[in-house]
Amino acid sequence: MTVTMTGQDFSPGADAEAHSLGTIRVLVAKLGLDGHDRGAKIVARILRDAGMEVVYTGLYKSPGEVVNAAIQEDVDVIGVSLLSGSHVPLFRELGRCLREQKAEHIFVVAGGVIPEQDYAALLESGVDAIVPQEARADLIVTTIRNLITARGRI
């Protein structure tokens, strides 16, 4: 697939520093009416094998519930897998809940089936990174590590 880069290309060089930031915690979430969590579970396993602590929410969660869980678990990242097509309104609501709860320090990474024409709308609503569905495992890991390295320890 050839894509036009609209954003920043992370180099893998930043990886090593992420370890000094302690253990990375990720909430893997399924939003709304979307019962397919094979992908979410595979991503959880990939992140586990990369040394991260992964909390899984289970299916059919509302954005508000996901944000409350993310705050209690003090995760660095919410990773959302969405295949239902309703990503634009759901991510908009997720972003709103994060702002409302003063939890904007938590990054949002989107994955699943998300058409390129919606990327701009998602970034606008508070998504920090979108990992295309055909991405290799290491891209997911690198994306998360780079976000946290750039943010620093909190």
Partner: peptide, 30 residues
């Protein structure tokens, strides 16, 4: 994991609804 140091914290899957409706504080720990 004794190999990667990572973990899957799956207890919350069962407790999320109760935590949400009862305003309980649930924290998963590896």
């Amino acid at each position: 994991s004794p190999f990667s140091g990572g973990a899957i914290l799956g207890d919350r899957v069962r407790m999320n609804d109760a935590a949400e409706s009862c305003q309980a504080f649930v924290r998963s720990m590896a």
